[in-house]
Structures are given as structure tokens and as C-alpha cells.
Design a protein around this nucleic acid. Sequence first.
DNA 1: ACATCGCTTGATAAACGCTTTCATGGCTGA
DNA 2: TCAGCCATGAAAGCGTTTATCAAGCGATGT
Lengths: 337, 337
Amino acid sequence: MTRRPHTRPPVLADVARVAGVSVPTVSRVLSGSAPVSADKRRQVLRAIQELGYRPNAAARALATGRRSIISVLTSDTTRYGYASTIRGIEEAARAVGLVVALTMLDGDDEESARVAVDLALDQPLAGMIVLEFDIQGSRALAALPDTLPVAAVSSAGQGRSVPRALFDDHAGARDATNYLLGLGHRTVHHVGIPPSGRPSGRLLGWREALEAAGAPVPEIVESDGTPRSGLQAGARLARRGDVTAVLCGNDEVAFGVIKALQDEGSRVPEDVSVVGFDDHPLAEIWTPSLTTMRQDFAELGRMAVDFLLGRLAGVPVEAPRSTPRLVVRKSTAPAAR
Amino acid sequence: MTRRPHTRPPVLADVARVAGVSVPTVSRVLSGSAPVSADKRRQVLRAIQELGYRPNAAARALATGRRSIISVLTSDTTRYGYASTIRGIEEAARAVGLVVALTMLDGDDEESARVAVDLALDQPLAGMIVLEFDIQGSRALAALPDTLPVAAVSSAGQGRSVPRALFDDHAGARDATNYLLGLGHRTVHHVGIPPSGRPSGRLLGWREALEAAGAPVPEIVESDGTPRSGLQAGARLARRGDVTAVLCGNDEVAFGVIKALQDEGSRVPEDVSVVGFDDHPLAEIWTPSLTTMRQDFAELGRMAVDFLLGRLAGVPVEAPRSTPRLVVRKSTAPAAR
DNA sequence: ACATCGCTTGATAAACGCTTTCATGGCTGA
DNA sequence: TCAGCCATGAAAGCGTTTATCAAGCGATGT
């Protein structure tokens, strides 16, 4: 049982009284905004120590007008890409003394986007970062008032209304597809994940590469981005019979696809090559280890913060961009002849 | 290029002026704390709409003394257990109109714990939840002032100084070990993950079950909780030669252990049974699918919030407790004779 | 019918805890 | 002795909420 102190917490005036100085003097010691003589400073510090004084954040925010919260809006916090981006944002924010507030967007109608946004805006925000990896993110972006500094983290080629830190999954998907074509596969199938609005960059890059190579463009197999949906997608691919190469929208889906293919008797990579997207921590110890497009999400999150802060400071910053890199492992092989 | 409005945001006084009423009247419309005539109310609402007014959270917090932020301290945001717990916390907090602030504890010395705690305390906090899954969490807990309402999420059997929402991994590990012994295994090896202080509940439950059954207690193999470290642990186990059953500290480690065992020529489950902990989303599609102790982290997070809120309201709430449940899949089998 | 009372509604003012501007008084240095 | 500097304190905000007060107005009692 911890003692619940019913006495109100000490305030600046208490410190001043105990130290025998005026309120502004204490404030100056705290902020260093003006010189204070050595012994007064010492007395003040001692009083602070003694009383266990902590500045009231609300009062400080009100007086200074400085905001110290970055709000992050996201539809998910557990999946790899999301969680890593959030980690990057938090690290960068913490490095400059800002705190990250997290609000989930659950429900993909506009009403719930509005509710979530309202909740987030109830805080005194320095700025906001929206993870626009999916439709929920886009909805939230649309529901934001334009008076607030916002940065989105999203796939290149989305709308241009809001400043964005971009990951170029368009180029990434093109590279991955070309890699598979280069292995001799006649074409490449695609397991899509839910896009944030228009067709995803991954889809576009994939299609572009196929068309450029004169390869047929197969029908897309949809998934919701989870391993379980990958399982279903894999089963459908296995039934087609003519599939030799698959590009998946993310690694979690790729895991499911591989599993389903194996369950249906296809060997990976001997019969079917599979490429993922993101480089999930388990990709390298999957069986077979997964060839994937590595995406540095944490870096992306950090870039988003720097970008937002730069804009806040009035410095014109170019929208940062991160391009995924191919990591070749054991889930891909030259086409069988 | 979005228009950057250099005009300061509208305040209550602006609304009052536009609506032609006094400031407190606007406030009353907003909070409903006192009746306001119908047409004044209408005018006020129209003015709010027109100006795009948003109450200043800092001012409101200062005036009311109400705090709307729950701070979450955690050493990790990406791993499954952590991320899921955070999700549960966020959901429960949002349901009651609170916002979650996330601060990472990175560095396991006391100094960095103090820095992180200070940053978090710079906000006007309703309360704090510490994820005490590891030593960083314990450090942070120790660095907290005792004037703040705190709840920890931790393993049963840890210290009692702070109110905690508990997950009973002690009982879970005992159950898992008994299950393996029941399959006829002579003993069960354990791959540990970093504890939060004293020996982890998982370790204790495991040892307790072995001793109760009169089985030998093998030396523990350590890991850091990542798949990669599981790989090393698995390799070491494979070299021992006499291992037929392994209880892993979490699923990520179990994945690595299985992979390494397979690489070394052991079959799972025919030669070695492996049990994980947590029920990671990939556990069911691993090859072989992973038998594990399912832990409902999201529920645990929700319980922690309810617990904290109950204590804040002065209602004496019993510390909630969640016990993991065995999920049998294909990574375990009766001992070979 | 008139003064009185109670009730609704609006306004004035104080408070929340801090920062910041400005004025003041004591020093220093020439 | 006086200009100039420094440390310090008094006071005015920051944008809300809330208590207190005053005014308006219909209803009531005689």
C-alpha cells in the first residue's frame, strides 16, 4: 500500500517561500533565462529538492505557448512496419525533448476517423504525424484541420496536399519484379495488401515492370496483410498451377503464402519463388529464409520527425524519401526450365 | 504547399465576441455546466464552427486540474508482447477519453531511466503505466516519484511496492512444463529471456514443476529474447544430444530454437518437442506450428488501465491477473521411447 | 394592482501555476 | 558623483473554468 499523499503538490510559490526568494527568481533558476546569484541559486535548488517540486506542465505550456507533444495517428501498432515506424518517431522525438502521443484509428469510416482526430487534438500539439499506410490513415489525414503542422508517412505517389516523408515502394516493387524476371520467370504474380487510397505503389511498380518487360500481367490476389490472409492467398495461387514467382505486399503475407504453397505440395523456391516486402525480423530465419525488399521503417519515422520539425522551424526541407533495398535469401531461385 | 496560417488560433474570447456573448457563456455551452438559452447557444455554436475554434488543452488542464494523458514507459515497442500490451492500453484509454503518451526506455542504466522518466513527467499526467517485462522497466519504476499514480504490468511474484496488473507466467511455465513431462519427457530444458529483476516467473514455474516431478533440472540456456539469439540457443541445445523437450521464454526465441534444431538435423517434434510463450501471430503458421502458452497481452493492457483508473477514483480495486493458457499445436509430441 | 420572491440567464472577477516584461535599487568603475 | 550594469521583485499576462453577483421576468400574496 503506497501512501497516497492528499496534500496538493508543491508549486513554484512554495519553493520561493521556502527558499526565501521571489517566484520569478525560482523560475529563472529553473530555466536559466537570466543570471541568479550563486547563493540564491543554491537555496532554491535545496528547496526544490526538499519539497520534491516538479513544474506543472500544463501551466508551463500555457505560459510559454510551447507545445511538446507529437501526436501519431495509426491504424495499427503491432505489425512490424507500423511498430518500427513508431519506434523511429519516438526516438527522434525524444532526442529533441518531445513526447509521442499515440492514437489508434480503428474503424475505417469517416466518423471514427473524426473521433480519433478529435481526441488527439484535445492535447496541445506541436505537430502531428499520420501513418498513411492504409485507408484509415488517408481518412484521418482528410479529417485534420489545416491549421496544424502535419507530416504523413506514406508511399510515394499518393496525394500531394500534405507534406510527406515517403518510402518509395513503387521503385521497390519494380526492382523486385525485375529481379524475378531476371531469374527467368515468365511473369510474376502479386499478392496485394490494402492500399491507402489509389492503387498502392507496390502494385504500380509491379505492373510497370511487367509491362516494360512485355510479360503478361496476372490477376492480383488480394489479402488483408496478415499471415492468415497470406495463407488463403497462397492456397489460391497453388491452385492456379502456372505460378512460378510471387511478389507479396509484405513479409507477413509472404510467410502465409509460403506456408500454403508448401502445404499444397509446391516447393519454395524450386517450384515457386517468393519475394516479400519490409524485411521482417523473422524473414531471415523462416524456412526457407525470405528474399525481401528491406524497408528501414525506423529511419522513415525519424525522417518524418525531422521533416516536421524543419517545417515548424520555417526551414524549407525537401520531402525525405527512402527506397527499399533487395535482400536476396533462399526463397527465390532461377525459373525451372 | 499548404497555406501556413500565421494568425494565432482563435480563443474563447474570440468566439464570445463573434457570438456576441460573454466568455463564461461560451464555456457553459461547451461544458453544459449551466443552462444557456437556445438562441445564444445557437449563436455560440455557429461562431465556434465559423472560427474553427478548439479549446486550448493546456489552459483547460491548468484551470480544471484534470489530466488527460496516460504515460506508458516501455523498453520496446516492436516486439509482440510489448506492442500488444500497448495496443490494449491505448484502446482502454481511448474508450474513456484519455490519450496515451509513449516513452521508450533505451539503455539499462539508471541514468537513462531517469532521463526517460523526466521527459514523461514533463507532461500533465493522469497516471503512468510501466511495462515491467524486463530490467529497464524495473529501473524506471524505481526512478518514479511516489506522488504519481502508477500501475505496472508485470509478472506475478515481483516486488509489491507498486500496484500491478499481473500476468501469471509462473503458473503458465509450470503448466507448460507439466504438459511436456506428461508427454513422457524425462526432463525439460529452458531457454530463458532477460528477467525484470529476480529470476523470472517463467524460470521459477519451470523449475518448480521439474522439482515437483522429481525430474532433473538442467542448466538454463540464456537468450536475449530475439529470434537470432534463439538460433544460438537452439544450436547449443542441439549439441547437448540429450535434449528432448524445450520450454522457451517466448515465441520469437522458440522460432529460432526450432530453426537451429532443424539445421542441426533434429526433427521437431519427433526428436525434440518445443513449447513457446505468448502465442505470436506467426506461431500457428510456423513449420511445425508452435505449441505455446497463450498470453492475452491486449487484455492485460486494458486491465492495467482499468486498474489505474479505479485507483484514481479511489475505488479499491483488486490487482487484476491474467493466466496464460496452453495452446497445443504441432511442435510437441510424446517422447520417443 | 403593487411590492415581493424565486428562478433563469448573463456578466464580472478570481483562480490555476508558470513565464516574461518592466521597473527598481544597489553596485561598480571612471 | 554619476552613468551603467546587474540581480531581484512586482505585476501582467497565457486561455480556461468556476464562483459570485446582478439583472430581468413572470408568478404570487394581499
